[in-house]
Design a protein around this nucleic acid. Sequence first.
DNA 1: ACTTTTTGTCAAGTATATTTTACATTTTAT
DNA 2: ATAAAATGTAAAATATACTTGACAAAAAGT
Lengths: 64, 64
Amino acid sequence: MAKNLRMKSARAALDMSQEELAKKVNVTRQTVSAVENGDYNPTINLCIAICKALNKTLDELFWE
Amino acid sequence: MAKNLRMKSARAALDMSQEELAKKVNVTRQTVSAVENGDYNPTINLCIAICKALNKTLDELFWE
DNA sequence: ACTTTTTGTCAAGTATATTTTACATTTTAT
DNA sequence: ATAAAATGTAAAATATACTTGACAAAAAGT
């Protein structure tokens, strides 16, 4: 899978580390890293939680 | 989880059965049924495939 | 230069998404 | 009314999302 640069960028715009985001969405830092690097296929609930934490919508971060 | 009535409605609008949709997105009919009934938490790739099959976006079918 | 924070990654384990098989119920068509 | 198609659901098996613990490397701060 491809890297999610939109997510990485949205997180950077809020000056938030992977660990901070991970804590906010109740997953591990490794999971956040894997999602950003396209290493796997997250569940929709995790995607929604990430969007809310980054003030974005699904289309903005995960639609093609 | 709550039922996904927007998805059910979008599928009905195309006069498509759960089985037809399932075939298009390469999952079983039971999985489509479970997603519509909110019985679990699908992966983002499945959600994207469903959106494409129903000519909708993630925000239209899965965002709150 | 050094320290601290952040990130990438890996291996082994656990939780859960998805499949398979199967049967009952509801809806639609004749 | 009856048959056929569509849907709900459940138990057991498999695939994979996610965790835990750990180490190395890159980036940022002093």
